[in-house]
Design a protein around this nucleic acid. Structure first.
Lengths: 244, 244
DNA sequence: TGGAATTTGTCCGTATGTATG
DNA sequence: CCATACATACGGACAAATTCC
């Protein structure tokens, strides 16, 4: 190998780095396998591994054993605040938001939902599932338990959206039509876990990827609980931010 | 099998549920395989799968395809607030906290750390790695970039803790000795990703498990940035809470 | 359920160039 | 000139994780 003053694996690293920056390899796109790269650069596979490993140190790629290495996408930085809405967060990134109501139904509230909403055990609540998207890419899948008894007529409103894709609506907007002119988050709990089958399907992520979940209790006037939602976000596509 | 008025799979579910509650199967411990359970109860494997599946719905176990099912541990509910400290969160759960300084060193700040701390690119900062534990179980592994130039004498203080296990100290305490009497979180970003090798080793988690990471910028008087920390939490052992 | 194919990670060893003393 | 240490690069084999059929 020719003498050039800079180590071979460093040159390979720089080449790949440029290709990512220039968009030859797009965010979330898979890089060629180490074997393919070794063939392309005419070097041993170890040399490629070293270059790619260094790229991961810099945060430019994400290596997944058995799957491949991927150019890292810019995460959607999702602000957590009492009045931050899904749509506001997307608009801040110049992304077109859309929200689809997947289903509307009545059900008995699970105990944790009933507790959060301060309803007696097994009360009837409205169950709404939604899919949030940014530029067509699925971002979150939410199950909302809504205290219908405190929001007269809300079921009808949600049913009018059911199944229609790409509708833009916000919860406060809908609730205003039920006479609720205040609505904000009270409590947010964030966890990480493997996706359920539904979540993996709707979010279009492999089962081995993880989801970030939020459990959000939102309240209306006089701190009356109105909705309790469990929402799953594709773990590799978002980050949550809390500012003080 | 005798007729008893309650479905077979429900009885199996209850039996397993009790064994988890009673501690026969400890948190994060693997349950016997479905085959083994089927043999034990003298039923078809499908019956066991139905029972275990129902347990997962209740959140008592976590099923991992191809690996096994595990009893879920109670997560450490970690409050995110401007003045919430690691030790306070643990004390709230009656858990004995401890924090070990793994290493202390000087280094050039990575760009994201320099940006956050408002230092010029490549400035020298103090780099401290810590391991937080609750009742001996590792909970978080943190890398702290500290603006040493704004905290005279801080390096010496951290070095006095280096390597000694089970020391209890808090950052505000140390900083007070450097003349800083105010210290709070300014900005927290939460993400999910696979662990690095270091993280997997220190947190004692399998590489397929995920970590929740926080990037925290903390400031002192007049909002002067003092520390920027990247901390990894075992994803299955914690949850974050934000209250409004 | 199981096995083949793909892909990354790690271990063995070998060789070369460079800097140090 | 020699000994040593270290980073670089190559080759082969196998382990581990994932995907697909």
């Amino acid at each position: 190998m020719e003498h050039s003053g800079v180590a071979l694996w460093r040159r390979i690293k720089n080449t790949l780095s440029q290709e990512i920056d220039q968009g030859d390899i797009k965010p979330d796109q898979r890089l060629p396998s180490s074997q393919a790269l070794a063939a392309r650069f005419g070097v041993n596979r170890h040399t490629v591994l070293k270059a790619v490993s260094a790229l991961q140190e810099e945060g430019k790629v994400r290596i997944e054993r058995g799957r491949g290495t991927y150019a890292v996408a810019n995460r959607l930085d999702y602000n957590i605040g009492p009045n931050q809405l899904f749509e506001q967060n997307l608009a801040a990134h110049n992304l077109a938001p859309s929200r689809t109501v997947l289903s509307v139904a009545e059900c008995h509230a699970p105990s944790r939902a009933a507790d959060a909403l301060k309803l007696s055990k097994g009360s009837q609540v409205l169950l709404v599932t939604t899919l949030g998207e940014a530029e067509g890419l699925p971002v979150n899948y939410g199950i909302h338990y809504i205290a219908g008894s405190r929001l007269p007529g809300i079921a009808q409103l949600f049913r009018s959206f059911e199944g229609k894709t790409c509708q833009v609506f916000t919860f406060p907007e809908l609730f205003e039509k039920c006479g609720i002119n205040e609505y904000h988050r009270k409590d947010v709990v964030i966890r990480s876990r493997r996706p359920t089958n539904d979540e993996a399907r709707y979010l279009n992520i492999p089962a081995v990827e993880h989801v970030l979940t939020t459990r959000v209790l939102s309240v209306g006037p006089k701190e009356i609980p109105l909705t309790y939602a469990e929402t799953a976000f594709a773990g590799s596509r978002v980050s949550f931010r809390v500012s003080f």
